[in-house]
């Protein structure tokens, strides 16, 4: 009963998931293929498999999160892992503990995996140096949000025959968006054609070097694109008037029902949480061409696949060491 396709990649070459930059297209495909089987588990009467029995996962969230956190927690529960949750509020971090000490204490508690979200880029990398636990990046500042990009890719594969050649437009605050950065990496690795669209103030300074088409006009972005990914305008951290007003942003960059009529084929995605009436008109959110809630369901399956593949790859990497 040896493997049928022994030539195919059957495991990840990494111990951690910090970002998609170092992941090969084959590794990304392995995660998406594996997620497909975990997706079916979510449709069963008993939505639980014993795969990660005995593994302890710590969800370390230094930044508020509803969707990602719930999604990771459900993924861990569906795989029968033991879970401990940590949030900044009410923890010793609010008493002045440093990140390193928090990490060392978690390490001392014999946690196998840490899912971390932090407002500073690089925190997941830093944690890999202070603990033996495996690290999954659930969003670090403006740097990366790899599982969001993976679940977006999964959703695209569900809706289209292939990601290769697909025209995807990412619209919104590209400069501050880890979702955009991870998606650009993932989409390009799988061969999609990416367009980014934002006002000049919300466009990253290195936009030209990202290997994507750049535009400042929403109509250009929506013209013959297959998918429009709207990004959340981060109202809570809207830096020093980068846009004149939310209303003007909506007028120029919000996707409206009128666009759905004028460009009759593209689908709408959004990483959540949505500001209704800002980046998307309310009617667009609820439209049948919006696949936003598919993204949420798929998120659980993709995170299950990441947890499964990383756990198994870790033990091999550890054993291979003398």
């Amino acid at each position: 009963m040896d493997e049928l396709n022994s030539g195919d990649l059957s495991q990840l070459q990494h111990r951690h998931l910090l970002g998609l930059a170092s992941y090969s297209a084959d590794e990304i495909r392995l995660i998406l293929d594996t997620a497909k089987e975990f997706r079916d588990v979510l449709e069963r009467p008993i939505k639980r498999v014993p795969t990660l029995r005995g593994i302890t996962v710590c969800n370390l969230f230094f930044e508020p999160s509803t969707r990602t956190r719930l999604s990771f927690e459900l993924a861990e529960k569906r795989l029968s892992a033991d879970i401990v949750n940590f949030s900044e509020k009410g923890s010793s971090v609010s008493k002045g503990e440093t990140l390193k000490d928090t990490a060392l204490n978690i390490e001392a508690m014999k946690v196998d995996m840490v899912v971390v979200r932090h407002s500073s880029p690089g925190v997941p990398h830093f944690l890999t140096r202070c603990t033996k636990a495996q690290i999954i990046n659930a969003g670090d500042g403006g740097h990366a949000h790899p599982t969001q990009a993976l679940l977006d890719l999964y959703t695209l594969r569900e809706c289209f025959p292939s990601v290769r050649g697909l025209k995807v437009s990412i619209i919104g605050d590209i400069a501050h968006s880890r979702v955009a950065r991870s998606n650009i990496l993932g989409l390009r690795k799988l061969g999609a054609e990416v367009t980014i669209c934002a006002p000049r103030t919300l466009m990253p300074y290195n936009a030209a070097s990202l290997g994507v088409r750049v535009t400042h006009h929403l109509d250009e972005a929506l013209q013959d694109c297959d998918v429009a990914m709207a990004l959340r305008l981060q109202l809570e951290r809207q830096q020093a008037s980068l846009i004149p007003s939310v209303r003007e942003y909506h007028t120029r960059y919000g996707i409206k029902a009128e666009h759905l009529r004028r460009f009759p084929s593209f689908l709408v995605m959004h990483p959540g949480p949505i500001n209704r009436g800002v980046e998307l008109e309310s009617e667009v959110v609820d439209h049948e061409r919006s696949i936003i809630l598919h993204q949420v369901t798929n998120g659980i399956a993709v995170r299950m696949a990441v947890l499964y593949l990383l756990t198994a790859s870790a033990d091999r990497v550890m054993r291979a060491r003398p």
């Binding site: 495991q11 594996t34 089987e37 975990f38 079916d40 795969t51 593949l309 198994a312």
Partner: peptide, 21 residues
């Protein structure tokens, strides 16, 4: 495919691929 239910996927040198059920 019973891969998700195996008791040894972490002990094996080669990770079993999760196939379709």
């Amino acid at each position: 495919d019973a891969t998700m239910y195996r008791d040894d996927f972490r002990q094996r040198l080669k990770q079993p691929v999760v196939r379709a059920t």
